[in-house]
């Protein structure tokens, strides 16, 4: 009896923590004022929140039914892909000039994401200087 009660308290705590994290991520998405700041709220907080919800689901399945570690698949997939999609969205923001331009690189001409191959000087397809 006490074990069940303890497990229910653990599940409830995981649910509340996960839901709060996802809510905070969406509030940040709506409230922050520049694209890069907005990018940083949901990509981290929402991913952590869905991880906590999946942990709650896993504990629930182990306690009340036939438990399995399948939820770990979703968790691992989300935790691996969230930084990649965040990186792509940040690249879109940089290339569309939505935020302030990146600072000068310390020892190269430009940042690699802004370095288009056909505009490099000395290349055969470089634009001809008038």
């Amino acid at each position: 009896m006490t074990g069940i009660v303890l497990i229910e308290i653990v599940i409830a705590a995981a649910l509340v923590v996960g839901a709060l994290f996802m809510l905070v991520g969406s509030i940040g998405l709506l409230k922050l004022d520049s694209p890069m700041k907005r990018l940083h709220a949901p990509t981290k907080a929402a991913t952590l929140g869905v991880g906590a919800l999946l942990a709650a689901s896993m504990i629930h399945a182990f306690a009340f039914g036939d438990g399995s570690l399948k939820e770990l698949l979703i968790m691992a997939f989300l935790f691996v892909t969230a930084p990649i999609s965040a990186n792509f969205i940040a690249k879109v923001a940089i290339h569309r000039g939505q935020d302030m331009p990146p600072p000068e690189p310390p020892n190269d001409d430009t940042w690699s994401t802004l370095d288009a191959p056909d505009t490099r000087p000395g290349r055969p397809d470089a634009p001809v200087e008038p």
Partner: peptide, 20 residues
């Protein structure tokens, strides 16, 4: 369009949470 892509990504993650 940056914010719209980000909002869609967030909505997908929230939908996964709702399904769970």
């Amino acid at each position: 369009v940056t914010d719209r892509i980000l909002a869609l990504d967030t909505m997908v993650v929230d939908a996964i949470g709702l399904i769970v």
